[in-house]
Simulated scan of single mutants.
Amino acid sequence: MKRGLFLVTLWLIGGAVPAVAQKFGYVDMEFIFSKLPEYKKAQDGIDQFADRWSKDILDKQAEIEKMQRAYQAEEILLTDDMKRERQRVINDKEREAREYNNKVFGYEGLLFQKKKELMKAPMELVQRALDKVATQRKLDFLFDKSSEGMMMLYTNPRHDYTDYVMEELGLDPDSQKAKAAPARPAAAQQQKQ
Results as ranks from 00 to 15, higher is better:
R95Q: 14
L7S: 01
D44V: 12
E96Y: 08
Y161D: 05
D92C: 02
V165A: 06
Q22A: 07
P185G: 12
G14N: 02
N102C: 10
K83E: 05
L125M: 07
D172W: 05
L171F: 11
L139K: 03
R137D: 14
K145L: 08
D51E: 14
K120Y: 14
Y39N: 07
L153Q: 05
Q61C: 05
H159F: 14
F105L: 01
D28K: 00
L12T: 01
E85Y: 08
Y154C: 04
K66L: 06
E108W: 07
L78S: 04
K41G: 05
Y164W: 12
Q193H: 14
K120L: 08
V27A: 01
L153Y: 09
K114P: 05
K103H: 11
P185T: 15
R3E: 00
D131C: 08
L7F: 01
L153R: 06
G109K: 06
N91A: 13
I90T: 09
Y161A: 11
I64E: 05
L36N: 04
Q127N: 10
G170E: 03
V104K: 04
N156S: 03
K103D: 14
T135D: 12
I46H: 01
M119L: 15
Q190L: 15
P122V: 09
Y71M: 11
L36F: 11
D92E: 13
A186F: 13
A21M: 14
K83N: 10
D163A: 15
A19F: 11
A181T: 14
L169D: 00
F141Y: 05
A62T: 07
K192A: 15
K41I: 05
R84G: 09
K66V: 08
G15Y: 02
Y107F: 11
N91M: 05
L125R: 08
K114W: 09
M166L: 15
R137E: 15
K55E: 06
K179M: 13
V165R: 04
P18T: 04
D51T: 15
K55C: 02
L130Q: 03
D172T: 05
D81E: 14
D80W: 03
T155I: 03
